[in-house]
Structure formats: structure tokens, C-alpha cells
Design a protein around this nucleic acid. Structure first.
Length: 581
RNA sequence: GGUCCCAUAGCUCAACUGGAUAGAGCACCUGCCUUCUAAGCAGGGGGUUUCAGGUUCGAGUCCUGAUGGGAUCACCA
């Protein structure tokens, strides 16, 4: 149930009736009619802009439309008061039993409360992380991982069919470099001095690989030319790296549905096929690119290349798909990969990139647009970088990777729940400061704690209630007399609960899972506020030992809160706390 | 120089894809523990939403330009 869409439907219904009665002209577009919670609670529970939006096309005064509409809305039993305010807003105050219905719905639907069919089962592919298989994941990847995973969960909750996918860049030059780096560690394992030349990967995470290679090959590869061992070592170390990456992701609680190998695109004709597809649309040609504008042209020389006319689909310049040496550029298999996604029948593609790949967005969108004839949208979400701190000072060193902090280190330090929640305390396109000390702090400036504390308090009450012999099982709570929930402070919490289904849809429509984390903070705040009002007003305390009925109603109420917190945390990927330690 | 992202309270950030008097937290003041966890709550001060124009009933939000910060910039992935 989504109260806001229900009431919006009511508004539209009445507008249509007005048209039938001739008090509103026909042929109006109601698409911009919105029903929203007003910023200021004094304005009521909901507000609609219908009169203002329609005034101009209807050639009427907003006031006239609003007055009429208000009178009609007030006839509905759900609406207690409808009044015109400001320039033509229509403020609605809903009957109290509407809110009781929200509590009832939450209890009945449980974890599914707020689930939406907005997505109508559309197939969505969320590609995220997609880090090169040349080393462990770092903290920046962690953000992309959490963002992508939470977005996938969110879209699922909003009625989409979601595939979580990781594109493995195992086909380019960087995996050769990995193989060479591993070879040096292999030599080292055999008692030789490794020569980590410039350009090789220096991180000591390759030490175990060297050891494993020794166990596999003994000393048979020592002093052999690269041509002998390169293929084998590339295969071996890429697999080892992917194993490590999977473990890193698992530590964060991220599970991919598909690992899609770049290498698997070669030799299958898929790249050729994708480019033929573009060629058939007249988007492939031999040509030379103009020199970069304004940039000092140090070694610029014109080159004849195979180009994709990405400018036809919104890019700034056309992009090479083939090197002059004849091999594919990185872009070519990526085109094929996205072509494959389109072929697999996805209705929507989402790519989660680090902000340093921002320059890649336009050409990727151009490719998808061209390959799907504009039918499959690609939304690219960029995650800004993460800056690590400890007690306010920058935190840098890593034992294993040399110059970056690994995802694993952070997860080991703060735990997956904290790591995940913190990653969503900023919009994806805002930089994120991650303070390893502050995120573990148990105080209200730490949103992770604050939300968990609300959950823990609810469970604490449940334990006390059980100890007092009160039935708190769902069957008993379902029978509770919710009309006993009528204090302003209580209804304030309930109204926040009523926003949950709406928030899910907004967050899913904008592909912004951080909204869930912010909502949870607000809900927790409402709950803490109610809790503390019990200090002044004993009748607001949740356990009323002399009145079982009231107590059960109040417990039913906060269990509804707990249900929404759990549902929200499930999207974020965090386990709700039952007690704080 | 081109492109993309960003600019909101002293600080860190929200703001419902255009709504009413722009909201939280930190910090600063003032209150609240014989109480289901005070790890919290209530209240107060604090703003020309970087600047200049434009679009309209209405702009932090959309458009143009400027300024400042970040990312990126031909056969690297």
C-alpha cells in the first residue's frame, strides 16, 4: 500500500468528476498533479498542487479549482479536512484510522511492506565493481560494491528483476603485466631475487601466488622465456586474483549473479558481430581524429583508424575501436559486452563506475543507444572517491598492497554492516570521508549506531514485555486495538512509516539507494523522540503494566517500526541489531 | 583548452527530478535520568543556497554565462 498514490488516485478521480460536471474543461493532462507530504507538518498530512498545475491549461483561477476540489475531497471518509492555502495548495488532513491502517499493513506484510510493483518485472542489469583482476579491491571499490549491491536490492524491492554483474577485464594488457609480476614472485619463491621492474605490480599480495606457482611448477619455469609461461601464468594468476576478489566481496556481503569475462568475448565472433551491427547502421568508418582541442599537442600525429561514429549518439568525438596495430581497443570488447547485455533482453542497463571513469560515460551511452536503437536506456552512476581517516587524520598505509587501503582491511576493522551503511551516508556523486574511528563511535553523530540503537531499543522492549508475560507474537499483535494509538507523538512516527512505500519508489526511480539510509535515520529519529517523550508523559511509555490492551497496541506500533527498519536495512545490506554491546 | 561532476548554516551534508517560512548532525547556549538503555530527548541562536542574468503562478532544483574545486582528455585498460 502506498497512501500517497491512493490519495492521488482520489484526487484524479474527483478532477475527472469535475470535468463530467462541466466545472473543469476536458482534455487536461493530469501528469503533473502531485500528492506529497508537505514540508511543514502544520500544513497537514498531504498536499496537492492540482489547482496550480491545472489553472493555466484550464484557464481558471487556482483558487476556484481548489475550492471545488476541496469540497469534493472532504466528502471522502479518508479525508478529515481539506483546505486551500497559500497560492492554491490544497492541504489534506487524513482521518486517524488511516494511520492505524498503515500500522496494520506493516504488521501484515512484514518484510514486504513497502514492496512496489513499479518496476513491473522489468529486467535490469546492474554492473558494478568490475575491478581489474590484478589485485585486491580497495576502499573505492568498496563504495561501488555497496552502492551497486544496495541499488540492486532496491530495484528488486521496487518490482524489477535484477541481475548483479561483474565485468572481468581479463583480456587486456594488464593481465599480462599481472602474469609477469607473478613470475617474479615465483622466482622469489624459488630463492631468487625478484626483479619488480617499473610497471609491474609490486604488492606483496602476489607472494602467495608465487608460492603456489612453485608448488605447481617446481623450478621448471626458471630462466624460461616468457613465451613458455605467459599464457599459463596469466590464467593461473587471474583466477587467483578473482578468487581473492570474490572473497573480498563476500566479506562485504556482496554476491554477484554473473561474472562476465572480457576474454570470453574474443574468438567467439561477438566483437565482430557487435561492430557489424554498428557498421550496418553506418556508424563505423576509417578515419583520422582531430587533435584534442586546446590541449598542448606534444606528440600528436594524425592516424588512420577504425572509428565508431559515437557523435551520432551524443558523444563529443568519434572513438577508435581498433588500434593501428590491428588489435581491438579496450572500447571494442566493451561495446560487444554491452551489446550482449542488450541481446540478453534487459530493459534497463546500469553501470556503476568510479568517478575517474567519467570520461567514458558518453561513448558507452552512445554505444548502447546505437546498438539498441535507443530502446534500452543506460544509466551510468559515478561514485566519487572515498577518503579514509582515522580520528580526523588521513589514513593511508596498507600492509599488503603498498599504496592503497584494501577493502578487506576496512571490513576487518569495522565490520561489513558499518562499512556498508557508511558508504550510503553520502550521495553517490559526493565525495565521502570515511573515518575508521568515528564510524565505530556509539553516539548519535554516527548514523549507523543511531539506526541500530532504535532497533535495539525496540527489541529491548519486546524482551521486557515477554518477561512481563505479555503476548507479543504476531498473531496477538495483529489483534491489537490500534485505535489506542492516537497521541500526536505516536502518529508522527506512524506518518513516517507511511512514507516508506513512497520513498522506495522515489529512490528506485532515481537510482539513489542513499535515500534509504537517510530515511532510516529520520525514522530512527522519530522513534527516539517518541521514546523520550515517555520521560515527561508516562502514558507514552510503551509498557503499561496495568493495561495489557494499550501495551499490546503500543508494541504492535513499534514492531511496525522495527519491520520498516529491517526492510530498509535489508536493502542497505545490514543486519538489524537486537541489542547494543 | 574540451567534456563530466560539484558549490547550500562556522564545519560535514540533506532537500521528494519545479512547490509554501531551505532542513538534519557537529560545534555553541538552555533544560530533561526515583524512567522500558540519558549510547538519548526537547528548545535556542546561526542562510542573499558562489555570482550575474533567463524561463513561470513559483527556482537550491531547469536554461545561459562567469568564478572556484575535483575527475578525465587519440592506437591504457
Amino acid at each position: 500500500m502506498n497512501l500517497f498514490t491512493d490519495i492521488r488516485a482520489l484526487v484524479i478521480e474527483n478532477l475527472t468528476t469535475m470535468q463530467d460536471q462541466g466545472s473543469l474543461p476536458d482534455g487536461l493532462d493530469f501528469k503533473n498533479v502531485a500528492v506529497e507530504p508537505p514540508r511543514d507538518p502544520l500544513h497537514g498530512d498531504m498536499a496537492t498542487n492540482a489547482a496550480m498545475v491545472l489553472a493555466k491549461p484550464a484557464k481558471m483561477k487556482p483558487r476556484d479549482i481548489a475550492d471545488k476540489l476541496a469540497a469534493m475531497l472532504a466528502d471522502d471518509p479518508r479525508v478529515e479536512v481539506a483546505e486551500v492555502a497559500g497560492p492554491g495548495f490544497l492541504n489534506l488532513r487524513l482521518a486517524t484510522n488511516i494511520w492505524h491502517g498503515v500500522i496494520g499493513a506493516a504488521l501484515k506484510d512484514g518484510a514486504d511492506f513497502g514492496r512496489s510493483d513499479m518496476g513491473a518485472g522489468k529486467k535490469v542489469n546492474v554492473e558494478f565493481v568490475s575491478a581489474n583482476p590484478t589485485g585486491p579491491l580497495h576502499i573505492g571499490h568498496a563504495r561501488g560494491a555497496v552502492f551497486g549491491d544496495a541499488l540492486a536490492s532496491l530495484l528488486d524491492f521496487a518490482g524489477h528483476t535484477v541481475t548483479r554483474e561483474y565485468y572481468v577485464n581479463d583480456g587486456g594488457a594488464q593481465v599480462d603485466v599481472l602474469a609477469r609480476s607473478a613470475y617474479e614472485r615465483y622466482r622469489e619463491a624459488n630463492g631468487l631475487q625478484p626483479e619488480i621492474a617499473k610497471g609491474l605490480y609490486p604488492g606483496d599480495y602476489l607472494l602467495p601466488i608465487g608460492q603456489a606457482l612453485k608448488e605447481k611448477y617446481g623450478d621448471s619455469l626458471i630462466d624460461q622465456p616468457e613465451s613458455v609461461w605467459l599464457d599459463d601464468l596469466r590464467e593461473f594468476s587471474t583466477e587467483a586474483m578473482m578468487g581473492m576478489i570474490r572473497e573480498d566481496l563476500a566479506a562485504l556481503g556482496v554476491e554477484m549473479d554473473v561474472f562476465y569475462s572480457e576474454k570470453s568475448l574474443y574468438g567467439t565472433g561477438l566483437i565482430e558481430k557487435a561492430l557489424e551491427e554498428l557498421d550496418a547502421k553506418g556508424l563505423i568508418y576509417q578515419g583520422t581524429l582531430p587533435p584534442p582541442k586546446g590541449k598542448p599537442d606534444a606528440g600528436w600525429e594524425p592516424r588512420l583508424q577504425t572509428l565508431f561514429k559515437s557523435t551520432e549518439h551524443g558523444d563529443d568525438v568519434d572513438r577508435p575501436v581498433k588500434k593501428s596495430s590491428g588489435g581491438w581497443t579496450y572500447f571494442a570488447p566493451d561495446i560487444a559486452y554491452h551489446y550482449d547485455k542488450v541481446q540478453r533482453g534487459f530493459d534497463l542497463l546500469i553501470d556503476v563506475f568510479g568517478a575517474d571513469h567519467g570520461g567514458y560515460v558518453k561513448r558507452m551511452k552512445a554505444a548502447v543507444s546505437a546498438l539498441s536503437d535507443g530502446k534500452v536506456p543506460l544509466d551510468v552512476k559515478l561514485c566519487q572517491l572515498v577518503r579514509l581517516f582515522k580520528d580526523g587524520t588521513p589514513f593511508k598505509m596498507s600492509k599488503r598492497a603498498g599504496n592503497f587501503v584494501t577493502l578487506r582491511e576496512v571490513v576487518d576493522l569495522v565490520g561489513p554492516d558499518v562499512a556498508r551503511f557508511v558508504m550510503l551516508t553520502r550521495k553517490n556523486d559526493a565525495p565521502l570521508d570515511f573515518d575508521l574511528a568515528k564510524v565505530l563511535e556509539q553516539s548519535k553523530d554516527n548514523p549507523v549506531f543511531y539506526v541500530q540503537y532504535a532497533s535495539a531499543r525496540i527489541h529491548s522492549v519486546l524482551r521486557k514485555a515477554v518477561a512481563a508475560g505479555i503476548d507479543v507474537d504476531m498473531a496477538s499483535l495483529a489483534k491489537a486495538d490500534l485505535s489506542l494509538i492516537n497521541h500526536e507523538s505516536e502518529l508522527s512516527v506512524t506518518k513516517k512509516l507511511a512514507e516508506w512505500p513512497r520513498l522506495v519508489e522515489i529512490a528506485a526511480r532515481t537510482n539513489e539507494p542513499h535515500r534509504v539510509a537517510f530515511y532510516l535515520y529520520e525514522l530512527a529519529s522519530e522513534f527516539h523522540s517518541l521514546w523520550n517523550r515517555g520521560n515527561d508523559l508516562p502514558e507514552l511509555r510503551l509498557l503499561q503494566e496495568d493495561n495489557i490492551d494499550v501495551t499490546q497496541a503500543k508494541i504492535a506500533h513499534i514492531v511496525a517500526v522495527s519491520i520498516v527498519i529491517s526492510a530498509g536495512l535489508a536493502i542497505v545490506g545490514v543486519t538489524p541489531a537486537e541489542e547494543m554491546r
